[in-house]
């Protein structure tokens, strides 16, 4: 970002989660959250920002993700090594409970972190790929609002897909 940050003291932001936990993050990490980067660019960023849609458990993970990505990208390592490192980190980072994944995906969407959003979407897609309908309903917490006849009709129309 701006070159002045290297010399002057590091700017920090305080991010407050839904359940009131406050996290202190450096600007290089905060700007990975597109919502905050926009505030900073618009000169509207206050040092204290409340994030109403993210719990402390998820925000801690989001910050861990952004920190690692910020450090790896600015670490001066070659692009290929950084890429490999991020891949390994991302893979391990995604090794969490399904509910956490869904919340991370939602948080990445709300905080506008493109790479994390894509990563969680890809992970969720590969998780549900071969799941049964009942498992998918449970995971996404959706109710079956089809009547028995309606559901049967869809299953019959596309019987080949259920084999």
């Amino acid at each position: 970002m701006s070159s002045s940050t290297e010399l002057t003291e590091k700017k920090v932001f305080l991010l407050k989660s839904l359940d009131g936990v406050i996290f202190e993050v450096e600007e290089s990490v905060a700007v990975q959250l597109e919502v905050i980067r926009e505030l900073i660019e618009g000169d509207c960023a206050r040092p204290f920002i409340s994030l109403y849609n993210v719990t402390s458990e998820i925000l801690a993970l989001v910050i861990e993700y952004c920190k690692h990505h910020a450090e790896t990208c600015s670490g001066g390592t070659s692009a290929t090594i950084a890429d490999e490192d991020l891949k390994t980190f991302d893979n391990e980072f995604m090794n969490v409970d399904e509910n956490i994944l869904l919340e991370l995906c939602s948080a990445a969407d709300y905080l506008d972190i493109k790479s994390l959003f894509e990563l969680t979407c890809r992970t969720l897609a590969s998780l549900i790929k071969d799941r049964t309908i009942i498992e998918v309903r449970k995971m996404f917490n959706v109710e079956n609002d089809f009547s028995v006849v309606e559901e049967k009709a869809v299953r019959k129309e596309f019987a080949w897909a259920f084999k």
Binding site: D145, F146, F158, A161
Partner: peptide, 15 residues
């Protein structure tokens, strides 16, 4: 991100 075969199945998840 899902292939068509899965999407066709998921037509029955909910309306």
């Amino acid at each position: 991100l899902l292939p068509t075969k899965d999407l066709v199945r998921f037509l029955c998840v909910c309306k």
